[in-house]
């Protein structure tokens, strides 16, 4: 899907093993598949169905998403940063598209 815009905000870790707060937001209509258009036809479902956050290849959180998550999906969680490196955030769209964002950590 075109025009999808991810945003992430991650606290900066100040030492190895620190816990950081992560906030993520992505612009997406999260079309539920239950709405009808002006002619009464169902609008096909198109949502972000999965989101993952990894740090240096290791999983922080893996989220399975249903249509009841609001437009512009927002997630907030806490991650452990064991060593300098980077986060990879990945959003999976129903249409097969994948959107990513990263955040580097060093101190």
């Amino acid at each position: 899907m075109e025009g999808v815009r991810p945003r992430v905000r991650v606290d900066n870790a100040t030492e190895a093993g620190a816990s950081v707060e992560v906030k993520t937001l992505i612009s997406h209509p999260m079309e539920s598949g239950q709405r009808r258009d002006g002619d009464g036809n169902l609008i096909p479902r198109q949502i972000i169905n999965r989101f993952t956050a990894e740090y240096n290849g290791e999983m922080v959180i893996d989220i399975a998403i249903d249509p009841a998550v609001s437009t512009n999906p927002y997630f907030e969680f806490d991650a452990t940063v064991p060593e300098p490196g980077s986060f990879t955030f990945t959003w999976y769209d129903d249409d097969g598209d994948v959107y990513t964002a990263t955040d580097d950590q060093s101190w």
């Binding site: 025009g3 815009r5 906030k23 937001l25 612009s27 437009t71 927002y74």
Partner: peptide, 11 residues
């Protein structure tokens, strides 16, 4: 960050 209106500012 919490404000989804900022997506429009970015755009």
């Amino acid at each position: 960050f919490d404000n989804p209106g900022m997506l429009y500012v970015d755009e």
